[in-house]
Amino acid sequence: MDYYAIVHNDFDGTASVAVYARAVKSLPKNVWFTEPTKVHNLLSKLEPRGVYNVMIADLGLNESTFDKIVESCKKLIDQGVKIQWFDHHVWKEEWKSKLSEIGVEVHHDTSTCGAGVVHKVMNPDDEFSSKLASADCSVDIWLHNDPMGEKLRRIVESNKDYGWKKKLIETFYNGILWNEEFQKILEDQVDQELKGYQKLPKYYRVIEINGVKVVVAIRWKGPPDISYAAQYLMTRTGAKVFVSANGKAISFRSSTINVRLFAAKLGGGGHPLAAGASLKIPLIYRILRRIGIISPANKWVCNVVTKVINDVGFKEYQQKDITQH
């Protein structure tokens, strides 16, 4: 079957394509890696060029771009294109209804990751896809219940190039979960991370909000990835929440607190244990950050985080949180 793939630019997006490819027994004619905030632009420019099947996975929807997405999907469907959309982020019921009404085949399940949705729908009996989806979900929705997830995430994100992700899709499609090349990359990545941990004290501070410790960090260059840094710093400091800001966006992580509520307060979203939102740090603080003066930006973010958490409160994560639509 000829088809195009449009997915999120991360491990979950890569795994989603591989699982789908195994289900339909063919690799995509082309694959686009994008972000939820940009998918409407991609769809508006997409031309079938003889390919009349499109799979979209691991891409949530935004209120501000939803109408444009509907318009673009309808245009493609009117040209004879079949669109399948697999996602696990929080959707409004009206979004599912409107897309379904124009002919989009919507598969939405918040209890798993993007690859997990594809696996459930397309090939639930494929043992390899089950292993890949398990590893992916472990890190994507912060369950941390499959050690292979920590290893594969490092492999996928060791190289941001399109060609690398395409190679990984082909590798997974062929039923290879781990090989010697991956092992070498993992060893190199871990070495870099260990060196990176030494520079972290300059970038974070610990604050206390209503008796709960929160780590607030300004993003640094290079490894470790914020997810690994989050686990490390929360364990090291006894904090229950980790917050990272890079100047334009803010990310929340926790193992026990529903941080999606904090992201939603700032107009964002995500998963109960891993979420984010747009947050533009004032220009003067960003300039100071570029020349190595981190504290002003950190203090500003701490004030934002304190206000948000005071407004929302700490809500313990419950398993049911991942199944609420």
Rank of each mutant, 00 (worst) to 15 (best):
V104F: 00
G80A: 00
I284Y: 07
A133T: 05
N123Q: 06
T110K: 09
L266H: 06
D87V: 08
G276P: 03
K151C: 09
V212G: 10
A297N: 09
I176E: 12
L43T: 00
V212L: 11
T306G: 13
K195N: 15
Q183C: 07
R49M: 11
A133S: 07
P28K: 14
I102R: 00
S130R: 03
H88I: 10
G114S: 14
G175T: 04
A249D: 07
D161A: 13
W220M: 12
R253I: 09
S254Y: 03
D125Q: 05
V212N: 07
W178V: 11
N179P: 13
S16Q: 15
L76M: 00
N145L: 05
L76N: 00
G103Q: 01
N159D: 14
L288A: 06
I169A: 05
K320C: 04
I102G: 01
V118P: 06
G238L: 06
N298F: 11
V312R: 09
L152M: 10
V206K: 02
L186H: 13
V312W: 06
G267I: 12
C73S: 09
Y317V: 15
Q79I: 01
Y204I: 02
I309G: 02
I169G: 07
Y317Q: 07
L186T: 09
S138D: 14
S26V: 13
S26M: 13
D311P: 14
E187Y: 15
H89Y: 05
G313V: 15
E208H: 09
P296D: 07
L143A: 08
L76Q: 00
I226R: 12
I207S: 01
L43I: 01
V212S: 11
L27H: 04
A274K: 15
N174L: 04
I6L: 12
K199Q: 09
E316L: 08
L273P: 06
T235A: 05
M55L: 15
G292T: 12
M122H: 02
E157A: 15
A5W: 15
A229I: 09
S129E: 10
I69H: 01
S278C: 15
Q192L: 04
V24N: 09
K45P: 01
E316S: 12
K280Y: 07
Q183W: 10
P124W: 03
L261F: 03
H271Y: 04
S251F: 11
D188Y: 06
I6G: 01
V104K: 00
K213A: 11
G313F: 12
D191I: 12
K280N: 13
Y162Q: 08
Y3M: 08
E71N: 14
E187M: 11
I102E: 00
G13S: 06
Q79F: 01
S72C: 00
H40K: 12
A249S: 13
V139S: 13
A239Y: 01
H88C: 06
A297L: 13
W220I: 02
H108W: 08
S72H: 00
I284R: 02
S134T: 08
G80H: 00
M1H: 13
A230T: 02
N258L: 04
P296H: 10
V19H: 07
A245Q: 07
P224L: 10
W32A: 05
V19Y: 12
T37E: 05
I185N: 02
K68I: 04
T34C: 01
E180Q: 14
D136F: 09
I207V: 10
Y20M: 05
S97T: 07
D2G: 06
K265Q: 14
K45H: 14
P223V: 11
